[in-house]
Structures are given as C-alpha cells and as structure tokens.
Design a binder for these strands. Structure first.
Lengths: 195, 195
DNA sequence: ACAGCCATGTAACTTGTTACATGATTTT
DNA sequence: AAAATCATGTAACAAGTTACATGGCTGT
C-alpha cells in the first residue's frame, strides 16, 4: 500500500510521467528501496483504473504525464490524516517463525536464535555504518537518515527481543512449548462421507 | 511467506487436514493473528502445485489429509536453518509515509507525527494490557507472550523513532526537506515522438 | 426448527515484484 | 560501433485476503 499511496501523494504535487515518479520516490525516501520501473507503470494503471489519476498530455519530448483527480486528492488527504495502524494484519515474519519453531520437536531453538542474532546484528551494524558515512546536508540525506533511523531502531528491538525469547525459554527449561499435533479433535462437526 | 512456511512446518510433524491446520497455527502463535479458513485451502493448493505437499487419505470422518513430501521437508529444514533476512524489501510502511510526507509542501508534519504517536501509544498500551492479564502456564500462553513481546518492542521502537524524527526536523527548522518536483530533467533519453 | 460450528472448497481480488520487449538517444 | 541511460509498456506470478457456496452435525 505504501508505494501506491506514495506515488499518489507525489502526483498530488503536480503531474509526472512514469520515469520521473520513480526518481521522485527515490529522492524522497533517500533511495532506501530500489523500485523496479515496471512497478511504476503497473501502479499507474491501477490508480487510473480506480479513478485516482488520469492520463494527461504528452509533452514535446514524448513523456506521458499523469495527473491526479479529485478523488485522488481526497485519498491523499485521508492517507496523511490517518495514522498507520499496526493492526493484527501486520505479521512479523520473524515472530511467527520463532513461535512456530518453538512448537516443533527436534528443532535446535538455541541454534536458530543464535543464527538469527548473528544475521540481525550484521544488518544492524551495516545500517550504522552507512549512516555514519552520510552527513545531513541535502534534503535527500535527511530523508535517508529518517528511514535509516527506523530500520536501526527496529533492528535493535529485534535484537532485544531475541534476548527476551531466550530468557523466556530459559525460564521454562522443561520445553513447555513443544506441542504435539492436537489429537483430541472435537466430536461435533462434519463426519460421514467416507470415501 | 510466513503463513505458507508455517503450515508446511506443521505438516512436517505429521499429516493434517485443513481445518486442523488452522487450529494448529492459531495454537502455535498464541492466536495472535486471525487466519481466514479459505487461506488454508488456498495455501494447500499452492503447496501441492509446488510439490511440497500431497493430498493423502480421507479418514472415516471425511477429513482430507495432506502429507508433506521430501521436497517439502527439505524446504522446512532450509527455512529453519536460514535466518530471516530483513533485506531492503521489508518496507516500513510508516517510515515511507513519513519520509514522503516530509517532502510534501503544505503538510503539517507536526500534526501527522502527533497523531501517529497517539495511535502508536494506544496500540502499545493495549499490547501491554493484554500481556499483563495472561499468566504463562500453558504452552499456548508462552507462544502468545513471545509474539506479544515482539509487537511491544517494535511499538516502543516506533515511538522512539517518532521522537527522533521530530528532533531531526527541529534541528532543520528551515524545512530543508520540502522538495519541489525536480525540474532539471536529464537531457539525454528518449525524446522525439511528439503526439 | 434454528442457530452455530465443523469442514471443504472456489473465485476473485490486492499489492508487490520481476522479466522481458521495444526503441530512442547520449556517451564513450 | 557499442554501452549505458531514458522511457514506456506488457505479461506473468507470488502471497495474502476476503466473500461466498455447500453441507452436515450438534445443542438449544
């Protein structure tokens, strides 16, 4: 949802053509995420289908401009006004994995956590290193710094969480969490159609 | 990717039928995420298509069992062995939004951040409240606690990040980041096809 | 009788993502 | 001449998500 909404918000500033939108998105997010050009045209098609943008003029150089519609502007305003809700929908892939892995017999959870810590720490350090290099002079650097901060803080949270998980598991050394497949299935339901 | 892999990992413990898989997934993740039943059958179809599971027998009660294949087991082992990589692909929706919003003229960034802080704090408090209630007796509670920890720590990271962003913006009061649409377009490219 | 749960499935759709085709133009 | 870049687009696919249809069983 964020690419779609971001492109729409940029178009709210004025008409753009595809390739330009890609550059704008990169500028405004500090080039933090590579964005395949094809996705731009894809997203523009879908935005047009939904009536949020419209194909505009083609300038002397052949650039195909898109302009935002009123419905599009309304959507941008709503996007900016409403906070990002981290509902239950935002699955944390790592949390799911560890929770599930903790219920599987024969899994070396310690090794899994160790390896994950190694990877998370490596990523954290890499993020720190890239931000140390940059000095916030240009606006693009500020955008990059803001995004980098978010990634660093989440990486730190991830590392502390890994410690927390180990503590919790240490407090339950009897491996309380290793589950068998539930055998006591409910008696009511939908039987009788045996092959 | 996490639902697919989780279901596959559960099937690695033994054959299951669809509805059972849903219950197992809920048990093992502390019921942290609601999972539409349809998604189970969907995912099973795709796993079968990819040769990772196979449709097994139908028991006396009419339950359609799926069993994992060798290729499936291999995939599970690989999943458990490899850490979750938070590559550039893992977009932080909030970070993108704030970074882009910071480049838009006429946006009250202070209000946006304030509103987001309110929402994030509310979510954080709600998470704390639900974990305070639970006591880690059963294994399912442990799973729920592990997942809840992750969400709480990320919520805290989000709140601290919001403060950091305000600090950064305060240090650049001249609104260094409000960008115009780039007008200096490159001279080389693909011109000459004027309508 | 009826509500509600167990159970299987289908169809459609969303966003994101990539690979590829095409062609012009600029730089080397 | 060759490589790189600008530019537009198409086609396909992945994973998640929802709505709906169908039907049988259980408890009230």
């Amino acid at each position: 949802m964020s690419v779609r909404q971001s492109l729409l918000a940029i178009l709210d500033q004025g008409p753009c053509y595809g390739y330009q939108l890609r550059a704008e998105f990169a500028r405004r997010t500090g080039s933090s995420w590579p964005l395949n050009v094809g996705q731009i045209y894809n997203t523009l098609d879908r935005l047009e289908r939904d009536g949020l943008v419209a194909k505009g003029e083609i300038d002397a150089e052949g650039h195909v401009y898109y302009r935002i519609t009123d419905a599009g502007s309304t959507e941008v305003a709503a996007w900016l006004a409403a906070p990002v809700e981290r509902g239950p929908a935002s699955r944390n892939e790592l949390a799911v994995k560890v929770a599930v892995a903790a219920t599987l017999p024969g899994v070396d959870l310690g090794a899994l956590l160790q390896e994950q810590r190694r990877a998370s720490l490596a990523r954290h350090d890499a993020l720190i290193r890239t931000t140390d290099a940059a000095s916030p002079g240009e606006p693009e650097e500020l955008a990059r710094a803001i995004v980098a901060d978010a990634m660093i803080l989440h990486a730190q949270a991830e590392l502390r969480w890994l410690d927390l998980v180990e503590e919790r598991l240490a407090r339950h050394p009897e491996r309380a969490i290793a589950l068998e497949l539930a055998t006591d299935r409910p008696k009511r339901g939908r039987p009788a159609r045996a092959a």
